[in-house]
């Protein structure tokens, strides 16, 4: 399968994603310039972290107007896999792929650290190699990761299993103290109804080697590969 990583002006985790997929997973991957409108040949599109367009105005608010986003929309509508990480998640929210919005972190400061996550949903392409309710570790690095939606939206999201990760403690406990940024319901990752578009604040590409403190992120990418090869197997 082939991954594509969108490069917006100001993206800064594009090269890390590229490294994780090509050098660690050994998969085929290419950069996609933000003006590209043809995504044929790609099986999974990643919107990487960073500060697209400086995040001036509001995070992701300008990037959603990039020419590539129309193509990403069509790609997702056609069932293609889309993974938005950090700024990529913010862009997916701004572009309306996923419900909700991001507020500034509750402490009103940027936060970069490893956090524990509880896997809430493993029946999707992105987390199928994790156990349900497994506790994993990934780094976060953001100023605007305080996920918010009104209570009806949250209820609907929860009811359909749209929450994929929650901030937790090392035993899987969910409490305000384990919530680094103030997100409603400790929500760290959200998937769309069709189950092919995932937005997540933590950075899986930063934990793909023991050397850098963990490999849980690698398992997320491996999930995608595994799901894809399985589906292809079934389809053909």
């Amino acid at each position: 399968m082939k991954f594509g990583i969108v490069v917006f002006p100001g993206s800064n985790c594009d090269q890390d994603c590229y490294y994780a997929i090509r050098d660690i997973l050994g998969c085929d991957v290419d950069y996609i310039w933000h003006t590209v409108t043809d995504l044929r040949g790609f099986d999974c599109i990643i919107l990487p972290g960073g500060f697209s367009y400086g995040d001036y105005l509001r995070t992701g608010a300008i990037a959603r107007f990039s020419p590539v986003m129309k193509a990403v929309k069509d790609f997702a509508d056609g069932g293609g896999l889309v993974l938005g990480i950090c700024n990529g998640f913010q862009i997916l929210l701004e572009a309306g792929f996923l419900p909700g919005a991001m507020l500034r972190n509750k402490g009103l400061r940027f936060l970069c650290k490893y956090v524990h996550l509880r896997v809430e949903n493993n029946k999707n392409p992105f987390t199928c190699l994790f156990e349900e309710h497994e506790v994993i570790r990934m780094p976060i690095a953001h100023f605007d990761g305080n996920y918010y939606a009104d209570s009806r939206t949250i209820e609907a999201l929860e009811a359909r299993g749209g929450v994929v990760f929650r901030y937790s403690d090392e035993k899987g406990g969910i409490a305000p103290e384990t919530n680094p940024n103030g997100s409603v319901g400790n929500i760290a990752a959200v998937i769309n109804e069709a189950g092919n578009v995932l937005g997540m604040m933590p950075h899986p590409e930063r934990c793909v080697e023991e050397l850098l403190g963990g490999e849980d992120g690698r398992r997320l990418f491996e999930s995608i590969v595994s799901w894809f090869s399985g589906r292809r197997g079934v389809g053909s």
Binding site: N12, C13, Q15, D16, Y19, A20, D23, G49, R109, F110, L111, C112, K113, P139, A141, H203, E205, R206, V208, L211, L212, G213
Partner: peptide, 30 residues
């Protein structure tokens, strides 16, 4: 930690000894 957690100290995927953990920062050279 209040200081360095405000800095993105992991981007570029090289930081092998994180801030605060050692006497110096260690970055692997890929």
């Amino acid at each position: 930690a209040w200081v360095y957690s405000q800095y993105d100290h992991m981007v570029q995927n090289n930081t092998a000894v994180l801030p605060g953990a050692g006497d110096a920062a260690v970055l692997r050279v890929k």
